[in-house]
């Protein structure tokens, strides 16, 4: 099977195994995670490069992937260089436009199925359970072994882990005492990708802003 994009992997891993509902995440976290996934996909495709100061366009020609090309065109149309954080903010605001085509792609690949339900016969509820859970299990097993072991990650796995931790999905995906004991290792792995670090910073900022707005204590992060 063709390798899933980071965008597809984040969408897939953000869904509950059994119900197909989106896992509980802090507000805006998935938006930033998907925005980061798009940037990571464009970087792997050799279209953009990043550093702590800015995102650089390397090649504006389309990738041929309709999940990515609208965002590459958006970046290419920008005259002034912008930081990764700035692009995350722009793309996170378009979360639905990133997420929906990725869900459709996962359905067409036979990985997810669409399930429509009614609550109280009126309220429509759409869920995306997996067909057999194989892909999600494979990713979780591979990344779980990386967290629990001492092996070096390849750049792709480092990026995926960094994105997952950045949008707080690792708390849902890798739960249990064996993973709690490896928090320092996960933190080290998650530092390895700049886009993932920026996703984490943006998510943290959003959580703090919301806590302040609601006059609630800032959660431990």
């Amino acid at each position: 099977m063709q390798q899933l994009t980071f965008t597809e992997e984040i969408v897939l891993l953000a869904l509950d195994d059994k119900t197909g509902a989106q896992l509980p995440l802090p507000v805006t976290a998935l938006g930033y995670g998907l925005a980061g996934a798009v940037l990571a996909d464009l970087a792997i495709a050799g279209k953009i490069d990043t550093d702590a100061q800015q995102l650089t366009l390397l090649d504006p020609s389309p990738t041929g992937d309709p999940l990515l090309d609208p965002w590459l065109a958006l970046i290419a149309a920008e005259k002034n260089p912008r930081s990764v954080a700035s692009w995350l903010s722009v793309l996170a605001d378009r979360q639905q436009e990133i997420e929906q085509p990725a869900l459709e792609r996962l359905i067409s690949r036979g990985i997810l199925k669409r399930q429509d339900k009614k609550i109280l016969w009126v309220i429509g509820l759409r869920r995306y359970p997996t067909v057999d859970g194989h892909e999600r299990t494979e990713v979780r097993t591979r990344l779980g072994q990386l967290i629990l072991g001492e092996d070096l990650p390849d750049p792709r796995d480092a990026t995926l882990l960094s994105l997952l931790r950045g949008c707080r999905l690792t708390d849902n995906i890798f739960d249990g005492p064996e993973f709690s004991a490896r928090d320092a290792r996960l933190a080290t792995l998650a530092k390895m990708d700049l886009v993932g670090r920026e996703v984490s910073a943006a998510t943290t900022e959003a959580i703090i802003a919301l806590s302040v707005a609601m006059n609630a204590p800032v959660p431990h992060m």
């Binding site: 970087a43 990043t50 550093d51 092996d151 070096l152 990650p153 390849d154 390895m192 886009v195």
Partner: peptide
């Protein structure tokens, strides 16, 4: 003088392949 994310990926990928 400078390394971007793309540069760091080359380093990590090489170290991983050898390991």
């Amino acid at each position: 003088e400078y390394a971007s994310s793309a540069g760091l990926r080359v380093f990590l990928a090489t170290a991983k392949k050898l390991k």
